[in-house]
Design a protein around this nucleic acid. Structure first.
Length: 338
DNA sequence: CACGCATGACTTGTTACCTCA
DNA sequence: GCTGAGGTAACAAGTCATGCG
């Protein structure tokens, strides 16, 4: 049985699974591939470059920025929108932090960027006192084709969201919650696959691109990380449960086998005179090397090793009434065979 | 209409980094 | 130059509250 779960773009399964994906006996393979990309493992310790801009402090992650600028332009075709006919150049929504986005098309205009930062930061600052005050102007023009949805549909949805938010604004007292549009969510998802954490520049650019406040983008990423981690934990838990079940079964089987061997021991008192036999099982190929050590007349020990399948070797030992040991992690190829 | 789930937003605590005395 | 205090920002974890099926 194979179980694969993939969230995000990290194809590498858990490190501990590298060693345990093949479970002997049951022949069951449990594989998980659930990654969220780099930077998920908590706070990154990358050094930040801090500089003062007027009263404002702009914190920029040095490494992150380097990475951004060195990244090749990514042609993402991941949005859940309808495929663009090949005859047309895809009008894709591009991640604004990619260097080639700046100053082109719908991308963030690099010439405007400092102003955008200033405005957004003012806005962000206002969040603290009025968290939802300027939500949802939602004048979004994603310049993308939308699976079966017309621009008009989008406008309607946008208007709904906008009016909801403005209604809330008038109330003022209730905790307001904006539901992001499908397009916004999809774009944030894709961004998350690219970077599970955002540096301030990315955050601002993304916020601008989606017509959201930077704080909203930040919160979305925080929640996304938290919930991905939660899912990951659930998957891990499930996997460990299965491991536990398998090991319990194996334990029962071995206990039973041990009982049988003890019974044989009492019924065949001469088994002690037989040479000791060691079964060495390779966990990967499940072949078993049977090593028999015996002394000859001159007192010299001679060792003979034969390889066989696990079951037949066990059967052999049982039939001969010998005590045997299973030594995992010793590959048969490393043992001399005769 | 009630309910459960998904999710946006908030609070709190921790950590790393920076500035300054 | 070193050091400790204070400030700031980012983040995780936990929680609340709302929107929606």
């Amino acid at each position: 049985m194979e179980l694969a779960l993939s969230l995000g773009d990290a194809p590498k399964p858990f490190a501990f699974l590298d060693k345990t994906t093949k479970m002997s006996n049951s022949g069951t393979t449990l594989g998980f591939c659930m990654g969220v990309g780099s930077g998920f493992s908590g706070r990154s310790d990358e050094k930040r470059d801090t500089r003062e801009i007027g009263d404002r402090r702009e914190v920029i992650r040095g490494e992150g920025d380097k990475k951004i600028s060195s990244d090749p332009p990514v042609q993402l075709d991941l949005l859940p929108f309808s495929p663009v006919p090949r005859s047309q150049p895809p009008a894709q929504l591009r991640f604004p932090w990619l260097t080639d986005n700046y100053g082109m098309g719908r991308g963030l205009d690099v010439n405007r960027f400092p102003m955008a930062i200033a405005m957004d930061e003012v806005d962000d600052g206002a969040d603290l006192s009025s968290p939802n005050s300027t939500v949802s102007s939602f004048q979004m023009d994603f310049s993308v084709r939308n699976g079966g949805r017309t621009k008009r549909d989008l406008d309607v949805e946008t208007e709904r969201a906008s009016s909801r938010a403005s209604d809330d604004d008038e109330n003022g007292s209730t905790r307001k919650k904006l539901r992001l549009s499908k397009e916004q969510s999809a774009f944030l998802e894709e961004s998350f696959k690219e970077h599970s954490t955002l540096n301030p520049k990315q955050k601002l650019a993304l916020a601008k691109q989606l017509n959201l406040r930077p704080r909203q983008v930040e919160v979305w990423f925080q929640n996304r990380r938290a919930r991905t981690k939660l899912k990951q934990t659930e998957v891990d838990c499930e996997y460990l449960k299965r491991c536990c079940e398998t090991l319990t079964q194996e334990n029962r089987r071995l206990q039973k086998e041990l009982q049988e061997l003890r019974a044989l021991k009492t019924s065949q008192p001469f088994y002690m005179q037989l040479p000791a036999t060691t079964l060495t099982m390779c966990p990967s190929c499940e072949r078993v090397a049977t090593t028999t050590t015996s002394s000859n007349a001159t007192g010299t020990n001679t060792t003979t090793t034969t390889t066989t399948t696990k079951n037949s070797a066990a059967a052999l030992s049982l039939s001969k009434g010998r005590v045997y040991q299973v030594q995992p992690h010793m590959h048969h190829a490393q043992k001399p065979t005769s």
